[in-house]
Design a binder for these strands. Structure first.
Length: 567
RNA sequence: UGGGGAUUGGUGUAAUGGCAACACGCCUGACUCUGGAUCAGGUAAUCAAGGUUCGAAUCCUUGAUCCCCAGCCA
């Protein structure tokens, strides 16, 4: 016996979509089944906004023991290419989801859609119209004014049937005929003003070749594809809210039982970047970035190359949540997600990005030794490695200051610091070149502090990373920063030209980095932490003996914050 | 004087008539061989005005602001 209480599930804390699913299940709708789909159009690469949709759809299915379909929404042969299909599949797999055998194309349903259209014509709720594109626009009215009916609106059913058949046979040129739903040309919702169901397009389709010269519009194809696949909850973004009325009108006219329902959620926006395919393409074409996989781009391929992990991306979108409110998420949240993930997994290495030479005057010339370094303090099972130490080292230029301000704990004349996993080091002398720049530091070390601890228990304020000059390998390091200088490059005040807000320093290439020798064994795509600097991913541009690293994200940097505050 | 949505700390989300919660950020402090991590504490919000109610983020009224719709794009 179902009491009303049984039908009211506890939806507290759940987003509006999950709440809806809970209610549907409690009410026994769709037999308790939850079936979703991810419906990309094969006309571009996926970005972090799609990650939100992917994780939502596939995640929902996992949670409610349902399934998710991958469906390519390929109803426009002019813009779609089969090449994108493979890349999209790869990206979804990389994020961590699989659709099993449920991969479909809207174009698989063209015949079925055609039959359904005939059914609607017979029913008297669809007609073939010969208004030109311009006329249709004019007849449709405006947002404030009602439209007026097409002269073909009330033509006999038999005639529309015949004409539709002729459309299919190719007897009309592009633009000469359309099939329209007969709804309400004066409807307050513009989407209901006799929307087009089919247009003539003599174009070859990536999937169906030249079999068709009429192609269904999104509104007609999408909901019906959902219905065919048995989708229960069809999730899309907010800009389709007005389309929902039409979505429902079609399933109702087709007299479908248990039709799918559409729910709209807010797109994911990130500050200091842009997400639209068009804008991304514009930057690629203008050479602002190197391609779809440029590590500065929010594309899945870009982020992967940058060093973001699927786990981090998934936690990120899960933390952001789902709602109907337009919002712009702070990239800081994305950065937090990747740091949290990598902190536990990334092996630590030492790399000096901007080298300053150090000579240890009391260390024997021509000698060297191997010191033990832990690979990951967060993960004991990662073990240790050996790093070579010798008389000449490199340290980070920024780790020395001749005239240190307050709160600068690092090396300075007369000051002692610790070299990580090595010895304590004291700076005795600063050597400068003719230009007055610091060329070298002459220092002494304390042999009693081998390994990093002093027998007398003294503790330096700072620990620096370093590499042995003779043993280090040289490499290139690419530092990335936000692509735009403003939070929302598409804000109204920049809209005429969002490119003017580009950050000129979004890429900084360091060609003289010195890396500890163990880095020679790394493979492209692998990620490690350069101690005290950040997380870095080896780039595919890497050549033998010429490693290239991308900075994924910096470490949290208290010193940088102090400096920034002073300004 | 078209219609559809939205509005809670700096940011993103919860709370569905009963103590405004969580995460990120930020600020303190502890700890530390990464100025990392970790730990402890703190900061900070209901778009506005009325109304209903013992009690309102939540219900009602009026208003404000923002987003979407006039593609043969999706």
């Amino acid at each position: 016996m179902n009491s009303p209480a049984d039908a009211t599930p506890d939806t507290s804390g759940k987003d509006f979509i999950r709440a809806r699913i809970e209610r549907d299940r409690a009410a026994g709708r769709y037999g308790g089944r939850v079936e979703t789909r991810f419906p990309p159009e094969p006309n571009g690469y996926l970005h972090v906004g799609h990650v939100k949709a992917i994780v939502l759809n596939f995640g929902l299915a996992d949670e409610y023991r349902g399934v998710t379909h991958l469906r390519f929404d390929d109803t426009n042969p002019l813009t779609e290419e089969t090449g994108y299909v493979e890349s999209i599949k790869q990206d979804i797999h990389w994020i961590g989801y699989d659709w099993g055998d449920r991969i479909h194309f809207a174009s698989d349903y063209f015949e079925r859609l055609y039959d359904w259209a005939v059914f609607l014509i017979r029913k008297g709720v669809a007609y073939v119209c010969h208004l030109t594109e311009e006329q249709i626009r004019e007849y449709r009215g405006t947002v404030k004014q009602p439209g007026r009916p097409s002269p073909w609106r009330d033509r006999p059913v038999e005639e529309s049937l015949r004409e539709f058949e002729r459309m299919r046979r190719g007897e009309y040129a592009d633009g000469e005929a359309t099939l329209r739903a007969k709804i309400d040309i004066a409807a307050p919702n513009m989407k209901m003003r006799d929307p087009l169901m089919y247009r003539v397009r003599h174009a070859s389709h990536h999937n169906t070749g030249d079999r068709w010269c009429i192609y269904p519009m999104y509104d007609w194809a999408h909901g019906q594809s959902d219905a065919i696949e048995g989708i229960t909850h069809s999730l899309c973004t907010l800009e389709f809210e007005n389309n929902r009325e039409l979505y429902d009108w079609f399933t109702e006219q087709l007299e479908l039982v248990d039709p799918p329902k559409q729910y709209e959620f807010a797109r994911l926006n990130l500050n200091y970047t842009v997400m639209s395919k068009r804008k991304l393409l514009e930057m690629i074409r203008n050479g602002i970035v190197s391609g779809w996989d440029d590590p500065r781009l929010p594309t899945i391929r870009g982020m992967r190359r940058r060093g973001y992990t699927p786990e981090a991306l998934r936690t990120f979108v899960e933390r952001v949540g789902v709602s109907k409110a337009n919002s712009i998420v702070d990239v800081g949240m994305l950065e937090w997600a990747i740091r949290e993930d990598l902190n536990y997994r990334a092996p630590r290495r030492m790399a000096v990005l901007d080298p300053l030479k150090v000579t240890i005057t009391n260390y024997p010339e021509g000698e060297s030794e191997l010191l033990d370094a832990v690979n990951n303090p967060e993960d004991e099972s990662a073990g240790t490695r050996e790093v070579p130490f010798s008389r000449e080292l490199f340290i980070e230029r920024a780790d020395f200051m001749e005239d240190p301000p307050r709160k600068f704990y690092r090396l300075a004349p007369g000051r002692e610091v610790r070299l990580r996993y090595a010895y304590f080091l004291t700076c005795d002398e600063v050597v400068k070149n003719e230009a007055g720049e610091i060329a070298e530091l002459r220092c002494t070390y304390d042999p009693a502090t081998r390994g990093g601890d002093a027998p007398d228990g003294r503790k330096p304020k700072a620990t620096l990373h370093w590499v042995s000059a003779a043993h280090a390998i040289s490499g290139e390091v690419r530092l990335y920063d936000r692509l735009f200088q403003v939070e929302n490059p598409l804000a109204a005040r920049y809209r005429d030209d969002f490119m003017q807000t580009l950050n000129p320093d979004s890429l900084q290439v360091l060609r003289d980095a010195r890396l500890e020798p163990s880095l020679a064994e790394m493979e492209p795509g692998e990620i490690c932490q350069f101690e005290r600097k950040g997380y870095f991913c080896m780039d595919p541009d890497t050549e033998p003996d010429a490693p290239v690293f991308n900075r994924t994200v910096t470490l949290r940097d208290t010193w940088a914050r102090i400096q920034k505050k002073r300004k």
